[in-house]
C-alpha cells in the first residue's frame, strides 16, 4: 500500500537541501518501526518521493510526500509513529492511504502558494508601491536556467495571484514539471520593478496544488 502524508520543513531547516531532507525522512521511516517497503535490486532503498523539491533556503508548511508500506498500516498509526520518529522541525500534519493506482505525486502538481516575508521594511514599502504597476505589465521576462543554458521566460502568465499584506507577499505560482515560476524569479523581477534589486526575503511554501476533475486547483494531498 502507499501512504501519502503532509509534513513541515520548518524555518530553521530551510537551508537543508532537498536530498538531505529526503534522507532525514528515510531515516525517520527506519526509526518509526513501520513496515516500510524497500526497492528490489542490488542496493535496496526505501521507496519515498516528494511531490516537489523545495528550493534550498525555503521553508514549507505543507509539503507532500509519498511512501510505500510492505503491509497495511492505519493512517493514524503512520502519523503517530512517524511524528515520534521525527524531530520537532519536521513533523507530519496528515496522512492518507491511497491505492496503487494513484498517480505519482509529482505528475499532479500544477501550482504552489507561497508566503514571502520581505526582511527589510523599506524594501517592503518599495515593493508595495510598485506592485500595481508590476502586475499591469503584459509580460515579465526574466532568466531561467535550463540544461542548455540560460533562456528567457515570461513569467506573467505563471503568476496566478499576488497580493501584499504588511511585509508579506502572498502568491500562487505555476509549478509543473515543465513550466514553473520560482519565487526567486518573482522576487528578482519585482525588485527590479521597484528599483531596489532582489530583496532579501523568507520564502515559505504553504500549499502544493493539483487539478481536480473539474479543473479546479485543490491541495495535492486531497486529490
Amino acid at each position: 500500500m502507499r501512504m501519502l502524508a503532509t509534513f513541515e520543513k520548518s524555518e530553521r531547516l530551510r537551508h537543508i537541501g532537498h536530498l538531505d531532507i529526503m534522507r532525514a525522512m528515510q531515516r525517520a521511516l527506519r526509526r518509526s518501526g513501520l513496515p516500510v517497503a524497500y526497492s528490489n535490486g542490488f542496493n535496496p532503498h526505501i521507496l519515498l518521493s516528494f511531490a516537489s523539491a523545495l528550493p534550498v533556503g525555503a521553508a514549507g508548511t505543507c509539503e507532500v510526500m509519498e511512501t510505500a508500506m510492505a503491509e497495511d498500516v492505519a493512517p493514524e498509526d503512520f502519523l503517530r509513529r512517524m511524528n515520534a520518529a521525527l524531530p520537532p522541525e519536521m513533523q507530519l500534519s496528515g496522512a492518507r492511504a491511497v491505492d496503487d493506482r494513484h498517480p505519482a505525486l509529482m505528475s499532479l502538481v500544477r501550482a504552489a502558494r507561497y508566503e514571502i516575508r520581505i526582511r527589510d521594511a523599506e524594501a517592503a514599502e518599495a515593493i508595495r508601491t510598485a506592485l500595481p504597476a508590476y502586475l499591469e505589465q503584459a509580460e515579465i521576462v526574466t532568466d531561467r536556467k535550463t540544461k542548455s543554458g540560460i533562456k528567457p521566460i515570461d513569467i506573467r502568465p505563471l503568476i496566478h495571484e499576488l497580493t501584499m499584506d504588511g511585509g508579506v507577499l502572498r502568491t500562487e505560482l505555476a509549478l509543473t514539471e515543465t513550466l514553473s515560476c520560482k519565487p526567486s524569479m518573482l522576487l528578482k523581477t519585482l525588485g527590479e520593478c521597484a528599483g531596489i534589486g532582489e530583496p532579501r526575503a523568507l520564502v515559505v511554501r504553504t500549499r502544493l496544488l493539483g487539478e481536480d476533475a473539474d479543473g479546479r486547483l485543490v491541495p495535492v494531498e486531497e486529490l
Binding site: S10, R12, L13, H15, I16, G17, D20, A24, R27, A28, R31, A85, L86, P87, P88, E89
Partner: peptide
C-alpha cells in the same frame, strides 16, 4: 548554512 542550523534528531 546547515552547519549552523541545529534541530537534528535526538538533540
Amino acid at each position: 548554512a546547515p552547519r549552523y542550523t541545529g534541530g537534528e534528531m535526538n538533540t
